[in-house]
Design a protein around this nucleic acid. Structure first.
Lengths: 255, 255
DNA sequence: AAAAATCATCCGCCATCTCCGGAAAGACTC
DNA sequence: GAGTCTTTCCGGAGATGGCGGATGATTTTT
């Protein structure tokens, strides 16, 4: 099988099946031919897969178009629930969003990437392009860097080996040295900043949630660079974020 | 394959793969042997599946235990987004929850079953055992009956043929005649009630959201029977629910 | 600390099931 | 109603999933 990421999956049928599911996800709504063309497979083959997935209720067919079934909504809920804090974090996010007026995210690390799991928006919050379950790189993200700073160096190396340090904007950290220096600085201050490293004109402040040497995730506050600057960016927001994170840690210990 | 619902899937490998995923979901966290025992498959077989699913990042392995990966969170978000209203419904649910103090749900029909997609809790709300993406039967649910009442009779017959009319409590409607009479009554009044048909001592009021002859879902307000009775249950709550549903319909038309 | 037991991983052959071409059936257009 | 496109059905050939058995890793027992 021609495979972009070189995954050495032993069971090709599963790879193909999920490939079809992800194709349907990207197209949002797709016909048999759409999927077959997109994946370069024979229509009869795709037909077998699609009917199977419909029988299993992972896809639904409406007016000749296939869509993701709501079984994924259930699995998504289950997957999210396996993450610690996921069920208790929302009030904290909302409080921080109210206090700062900006966009607040809760994110965790999985497979070397950041996954967005919760968010709240203050009254001045900018539109965010991310959604629950969305992913981004760790190295160009305040929350991502806050998490990396808490991981052992060899794990950080592993992650860099997996994903590299792709340059997302001109300010993205792209060398190992610079990244490790940055992580050291973050460890000293206990919070991380993002200076337009992921998206131009956008900044963020974040702190990791660490309980018993385990990194449970990070909380970040982000917004337009013209609002996040000076004392607010350097002192006020970091203190607000760290204060909430501290509260979460304490409450999590006794639960 | 021993299969409870008699699905005639053509591609067995997919059925097995998703079976393993659902096993991991049920066990929340499982070892290779757990899954193999649960499914009655050889360990070597399960090993192949689990490593493949980890390579594809649908499962993650932590300390020798497999769990659902957060990729399902993303797919769940995508699946939910394919449903109309899913992105705009929350404020309405919250308003209704505030006004009534009870538990409010938004649900839709898929494959002949009710799927819970949104909820909000008032200050007196009882603990609910459902979660986002969870399913229940249509015939024993206020929202489910409200939806059924809007579907063509032949579709209702189809759904009964698929799932039957299982008796969940002693008050559940279990005969076709009684159900069709109930649906007729619902059509006359434009709202549905649940008299402990799904859970003892629990009642609910619901109305379907219908736009251009298409049933988009239903909103239900539920709570303990001792609070949902008399005029409140017969007039007040139905009016509150129908009022919100009406508002949703109007706003949805012009969007 | 050695031994035993348990669990995860690797290997290779056989039986099975995927995969696709081609044909038939259905849907839509003009 | 003829023509075009799409979906569905079918059967054979070749690829691959499935499992037993062996090896290595880890934990538990004595």
């Amino acid at each position: 099988m021609t495979d972009e990421t070189g995954g050495s999956a032993t069971i090709g049928t599963l790879e193909k099946g999920f490939g079809i599911i992800e194709t349907v996800e990207e197209l949002e709504s797709a016909t048999l031919t759409d999927v077959a063309d997109e994946m370069g497979l024979a229509r009869s083959t795709v037909h077998d897969y699609l009917t199977t997935l419909c029988d299993l209720e992972y896809l639904v067919k409406t007016d000749g178009e296939y869509q993701l079934g709501l079984t994924f909504t259930r699995l998504g809920t289950s997957a999210t629930e396996t993450v610690q804090l996921s069920d208790t974090i929302t009030p904290y996010l909302e409080r921080l969003a109210d206090a700062t007026g900006e966009t607040v995210w809760f994110l965790v690390e999985e497979c070397g990437r950041a996954v967005y799991l919760g968010h709240a928006e203050g009254d001045q919050a900018i539109k965010t392009e991310h959604s629950i379950g969305g992913r981004s790189y760790l190295h160009c993200h305040a929350g991502g860097k806050a998490i990396l700073a808490q991981l052992p160096d060899e794990r950080v190396e592993e992650i860099i080996d997996m994903h590299g340090l792709p340059e997302i904007t001109e300010h993205t950290i792209t060398s190992r040295e610079a990244l490790f220096e940055e992580l050291e600085r973050i460890r000293e201050r206990n919070y991380a900043q993002n200076h337009s490293e992921q998206l131009a004109e956008t900044r963020a402040v974040s702190a990791a949630i660490v309980v018993d040497d385990e990194v449970l995730g990070a909380i970040s506050v982000g917004g337009p660079a013209h609002r996040l600057r000076g004392d607010r960016f350097e002192t006020e927001l970091p203190n607000q974020v760290m204060s909430v994170v501290n509260e979460i840690r304490i409450n999590h210990r006794y639960s």
